[in-house]
Computed example of a mutant assay.
Amino acid sequence: MRTTFSWRQPRSWSLLLLCLLLTGCATRVIYYWLDSAIVWQLDDYFSLDRSQKKLLDTEVKGLMAWHRQHELPIYARDLDALAKAVASPMSPEQVAVHLDKTQASLTRTLENAIPRTVRLARTLTDAQVAHFMGDRVKRQEERQHDFATESKAEMLKGFREKMNERLVFWIGKVKPAQEPLIAQWAEWQYEMMGPWLEFQGAWTKELERLMKQRQSPDFGKELTRLLQQGDGLMDGRFTGYTDQSRQRTIKWLSDLSQSMDLSQRAHLYTLLKDYAEDFEGMVGKG
């Protein structure tokens, strides 16, 4: 039975952003370095022993080899199609199609990664899990404190600045007519921050519960459920927010596409074509 993962999951979008931040001529260098970066990051989280590091190295190399062979050709094809699409104003329906393609790729990657994650998780000690969860809870508390103490004006300013930086990278100089779109995005981010932090707290508690049962035969199935349907926690209250967020994002990206001038379209087209060519050149290579 094929597992489908919610496009709304934060770690799915984290992976997407990682892929999107592979820029210019450094794309291949960064991609080939990812296996080492993943190993270093997880070792930092858990302080792995020698046998665990060996297992992690094997699993990550297997995941990356699979990804190069099976996913990079799809990345190249989908990015080429997206480059052609952005040359003209995109409707919400067109945006949704390309978002769905991205989610399909993330779903396949997670399907390959989860069994590997389960094998590693079963080797973790209680002390390693406690260290990881303690660090995650601490960072969650820091985010909640920042949200409670920082003024709305300060947060909105930060959201606008971040989005402006992203747009400058993707489409070049932002036009005055696009400033209202940036302001709208910032308002949405602020509006979602409270529910998002509440959800993150519930998700972390559920992950902690599962990690205590990592030797259970059902651990893999339960971890998949958390990644697949995690926004159904809290009696499904967050599902409505994420459905709304998806529709807002689709409309916002369509509105942005409608607002772009020829120079911005050319800028974005060139970036996407370069990514497509880079990924195509990496297919099957290690």
Rank of each mutant, 00 (worst) to 15 (best):
T4I: 15
K205F: 06
L120M: 14
S151Y: 02
L56P: 03
L63R: 12
H70F: 09
L22T: 00
L18R: 12
L120V: 07
S259W: 00
T4K: 15
V95P: 01
Q103G: 13
D235F: 06
M282Y: 07
A177M: 06
Q264A: 09
V60C: 11
W33F: 11
R237M: 08
A26I: 05
W203K: 09
R2T: 12
W185M: 14
F199Q: 13
R108I: 01
Q52W: 03
M1E: 14
C25Y: 04
K84Q: 15
Q229F: 08
F46S: 05
L124Q: 08
L22W: 01
A85Y: 01
K285S: 05
D80I: 02
E59C: 08
F238A: 11
V97C: 08
Q128C: 09
M211C: 10
H145R: 15
P10C: 04
Q229P: 01
H70L: 10
G62H: 04
L82A: 06
L72W: 04
D43K: 03
W196S: 11
V97R: 15
D146I: 11
T27I: 03
A202S: 14
T117K: 11
T242W: 11
L34Q: 09
D235N: 15
Q213K: 14
L17W: 02
A26V: 07
E93N: 08
A148H: 07
L48T: 03
Q128H: 09
V118P: 10
R136W: 09
S51R: 15
W203A: 12
F159T: 00
